[in-house]
Simulated scan of single mutants.
Amino acid sequence: MTDQPAADEALLGPAEIRELAAGLDIRPTKQWGQNFVIDKGTVRKIVRLAGVGADDVVVEVGPGLGSLTLALLPQVRQVVAVEIDRRLAEQLPKTVETMAPAVLDRLRVVQQDALTVTELPDPQPTALVANLPYNVSVPVVLSMLQRFPSIEKVLVMVQLEVAERLAAGPGSKVYGVPSVKAAWYADVRLADKVGRNVFWPAPNVDSGLVSMVRREPPRTDVPAAQVFACVDAAFAQRRKTLRAALAGWAGSPAAAEEALVRAGIDPTLRGERLSVHDFAALAAARAAPSNA
């Protein structure tokens, strides 16, 4: 492993980031939610909190100009960088070759939209570590966990509000669809908060680091898609009782109540009171043959 002082020499600072962006005529766009990390301490923190090591294959979504990539490469077996912007995808290997040539062979670049990528080069990723564009952060995390079961751990930087939603538990004011779906795949926690001044350009919101460790789903007798359909329905009308909110999903209010009772759930509760285990039990109860 490269020690920290040596690794620090290969990290990008504010001047290098701006120079690279100017050379590529790149202006960060809101369309792709681009905010480049310019703080070396932040990328070191992300790598440390990710808990990745020499055996890990990391998929990094939206590597941008390479701030986090350069911090990851000396520490892991391989980094698979998924970048939608062609100019950034083509520049990344050149930046690594210039700043850290000894680890260039550990980099693979996939120029594709992370929301549509279905295959990654072998070896398959064991971790997702990324500074995610705010506008697609939740879909990216959930789709990566769904499509690549080899991913065992996640450390992503997202908008703080999104981070808090992902890590929220039942009963919390910010508990909702992302919270439940993330909990289907993993144990989720808010690992740290990040200020605005570590980015260029500085966003108008704070960020958060979300840690996820994959575990077995709550149940194996009901597909995730069925559980997620139930979750979506419950939170689409979150002020209504579950009996009313799930009427469309179940076929009628009576059918919703029957499924809720069979799952051992009070039909007068609202969706924010249910855990992922409750939603899984409810989906299973709805799918099971009725005794009526």
Rank of each mutant, 00 (worst) to 15 (best):
T2C: 01
T2Y: 06
D3I: 04
Q4G: 03
A6H: 14
A6I: 10
D8K: 02
L11C: 03
L12G: 06
G13L: 06
E16P: 00
R18N: 03
E19H: 10
L20T: 02
A21L: 15
A22T: 10
L24D: 00
L24G: 00
D25S: 14
P28L: 00
P28A: 09
G33E: 11
G33H: 07
F36M: 05
F36W: 11
I46M: 14
I46V: 13
V52I: 15
G53P: 07
D56A: 03
E60W: 10
V61I: 14
G62Q: 08
P63H: 09
L68E: 08
T69H: 04
L70P: 00
A71H: 04
P74S: 02
P74R: 07
V76H: 03
V79M: 09
V79G: 02
V80R: 10
V80P: 00
V82F: 10
V82Q: 11
E83P: 06
D85R: 06
R86Q: 15
A89H: 04
Q91F: 14
T95D: 01
M99T: 00
M99G: 00
L107E: 07
R108W: 05
V109H: 02
V109K: 04
Q112G: 06
T118L: 12
T118M: 09
E119P: 08
Q124R: 10
T126R: 02
L128N: 13
P133I: 12
V138A: 05
V138S: 11
S150C: 07
E152H: 09
L155D: 05
V156G: 08
M157R: 09
E161P: 07
V162N: 06
E164M: 12
R165M: 03
R165G: 04
V174C: 04
Y175T: 11
Y175G: 08
V180Y: 01
K181C: 14
W184I: 15
Y185S: 02
R189F: 04
A191F: 15
N197H: 13
V198D: 02
W200G: 00
A202G: 03
L209I: 13
S211F: 13
S211L: 14
E216L: 12
E216Y: 01
P217R: 07
P218Q: 07
R219K: 05
R219T: 00
C230W: 00
A233K: 01
K240A: 11
R243I: 15
A244K: 14
L246S: 01
A259F: 12
V261Q: 09
I265Q: 05
R270W: 06
R270A: 08
G271W: 04
G271C: 11
L274S: 03
L274M: 14
D278I: 08
L282T: 02
R286F: 07
S290W: 10
N291A: 14
A292G: 14
